[in-house]
């Protein structure tokens, strides 16, 4: 497979995952807001901006309406939903012949839908409609991809992009929540705290799955364990890293580069996660732990770029 094509598929997938993630964060936030006072909501806005890597406004004033706009339809903000969907589409457009017609049509439809939403339809942004549509559009694209594209090398880069992005987002989101350490960790949280923790779970589409595993009693320690270490839940760090590794192993075999750096790095990260105990993690600080996961993830990303997409000609000629 051409390096340029692999690179485009990988980035397409990352951007789309990012758009979906942002849409879910805002969607969840809108729901919580209904049950909260204005002051309680303000703190979450800051965390939302932080999680989306958008600098908070200089004057410190949080204006829900304009912030929603920045995160959704602002073309000048590269992390806005519109920017991400547009970037995903542009990447797929560059390699359109590599994907199925259905994939292209689905992503194009999503783009047209997001792009045609105007600020004058701001009401959309204050209801679920818009954000649900983005999430559903992204889910549909994933489903279409899985059922209409050969699960060959190209598909693996799409998997890789999605889960590299998801790992990073999850880790970042968890980090922002455990930044202000709750006390005590292993007890059910009080009512004012309750909404925040449910918010975190819902932001990871994890509330229902959490309840099935631990019942509806919310303990920060359990939330952390579930989101970091659960091997079965698709929006946990552990699950995402496993997928990254699986994709890299598959690519390594398809390209006959089994022993290369990216495969090793992902393997190490997987091993770390599967042997970690939540008590140890919490004892030494959840923040430090997620930072280390993010750093290793970034290293794997760099290695993927260097080995598959943008390797030096010199090194390729030697091998």
């Amino acid at each position: 497979m051409l390096s340029r094509v692999a690179d485009s598929l990988y980035w397409m997938s990352r951007y789309l995952e990012r758009a979906e993630h942002t849409a879910r964060l805002i969607d969840v936030d809108l729901q919580l807001r209904l049950d909260q006072s204005l002051e309680a909501g303000a703190g979450r806005w800051l965390r939302l901006l932080q999680a989306s890597q958008v600098p908070p406004p200089e004057d410190g004033k949080i204006d829900a309406e304009s912030l929603t706009n920045v995160l959704t339809l602002d073309r000048t903000n590269p992390s806005s939903i519109l920017s991400c969907v547009a970037a995903a589409r542009e990447n797929l457009r560059q390699v359109r012949e590599q994907c199925s017609t259905e994939m292209w049509e689905q992503l194009n439809r999503l783009y047209l839908q997001v792009n045609s939403t105007t600020a004058s339809e701001a009401w959309l942004l204050h209801t679920h409609v818009f954000f649900r549509a983005v999430q559903e559009g992204a889910h549909l694209f994933q489903g279409v991809t899985d059922s209409t594209m050969s699960h060959g090398e190209g598909w693996q880069y799409i998997q890789l992009g999605r889960f590299v992005e998801r790992t990073d987002e999850l880790a970042r989101l968890i980090g922002t929540h455990f930044g202000r350490l709750p006390h005590p960790l292993d007890q059910a949280v009080e009512s004012e705290e309750y909404l925040e923790w449910v918010g975190l779970l819902k932001s990871c589409a994890a509330f229902e799955a959490y309840c099935k595993t631990y019942t509806a009693e919310i303990r920060p320690m359990r939330v952390a364990e579930f989101l970091l270490l659960n091997p079965e839940f698709p929006h946990s760090v552990r699950f995402s890293v496993d997928r990254v590794q699986a994709a890299l192993v598959a690519i390594g075999e398809l390209t006959e580069r089994k022993a290369e750096q990216p495969v090793r790095l992902a393997g190490r990260l997987c091993a770390t996660l599967s042997f970690s105990q939540i008590e140890e993690i919490m004892a030494s600080g959840a923040n430090g732990y997620v930072d280390s996961v993010r750093w290793q993830c970034a290293q794997a990303h760099t290695a993927i770029q260097q080995v598959y997409f943008d390797y030096s000609v010199e090194s390729a000629l030697v091998s």
């Binding site: 497979m1 051409l2 390096s3 340029r4 692999a6 012949e97 090398e153 690519i251 398809l254 390209t255 006959e256 580069r257 598959y308 997409f309 390797y311 000609v313 390729a316 000629l317 091998s319």
Partner: peptide
């Protein structure tokens, strides 16, 4: 390209070294 089952390349996918043309693939040149 699809009908013939061949690679669709852009100029930036190709390079020349010692008078030989290579394409950059994920599996190497």
């Amino acid at each position: 390209a699809q009908q013939m089952g061949i690679e669709l390349v852009e100029g930036r996918d190709l390079l020349v070294h010692d008078n030989v043309v290579y394409m950059r693939t994920t599996a190497g040149l």
